[in-house]
């Protein structure tokens, strides 16, 4: 009965292969088949953004993408952003500015912010709020998330200027 397909992806820089039914949702492939449990499932209707990952250079919601559609894609999840020995500035700033509480939205939030700051390296507060509007948080009221993203942008720009 099963019509599993041979799925090839590049996840966090590594080529991975797995068998999956075409109908499996990318979020389930990542979480169940590949053991990448950073991205979460919150609403299942593409409203909350807890499942946000980066696919081929764009932020997407992995709950509304079939495994088959992702065939061949390059995917970055929270697990691919920073390492324990070298955290990404966003990860540091979320902690510094108390931009998280229960932590459930955080992987999607940071993964989205990571792409946002590449798209818009020096955002205004309004641009951060608009650019992060696909990610819901029930705990923080966003104020400290916005603060963390703006602080991270600042920090990244300072580092970039110093390097130039």
């Amino acid at each position: 009965m099963s019509n599993r397909m041979h799925l090839t992806l590049k996840v966090n820089g590594e080529a991975v292969e797995t068998l999956a039914e075409p109908r499996e949702l990318l979020i389930h492939v990542l979480r169940e088949r590949l053991g990448i449990t950073g991205p979460h499932i919150g609403c299942e209707t593409s409203h909350c953004g807890a499942c946000t990952v980066d696919m081929d250079g764009k932020s997407v919601k992995a709950c509304t993408i079939f495994a088959a559609q992702a065939q061949g894609a390059e995917i970055t999840t929270i697990e691919g952003i920073g390492t324990p020995d070298s955290l990404h500035v966003l990860q540091e700033m979320f902690r510094e500015h108390h931009g998280l509480q229960c932590g459930f939205c955080t992987p999607g939030m940071i993964t989205r912010a990571w792409r946002l700051l590449q798209e818009t390296p020096s955002p205004t507060e309004e641009e951060v709020r608009f650019g992060m509007a696909g990610n819901l948080c029930r705990c923080t009221g966003y104020q400290n998330i916005v603060k963390a993203v703006l602080a991270a942008a600042n920090e990244l720009n300072t580092v970039k200027e110093a390097a130039e």
Binding site: G35, G38, P39, H40, P84, Q91, H98, L100, F104
Partner: peptide, 21 residues
Amino acid sequence: RKRVEDARFTQGKGNYVDDIK
């Protein structure tokens, strides 16, 4: 004080019930 919980949450290493396999 900054939160000790944040290290795992910001790196996607929280352990929520649906993560249990």
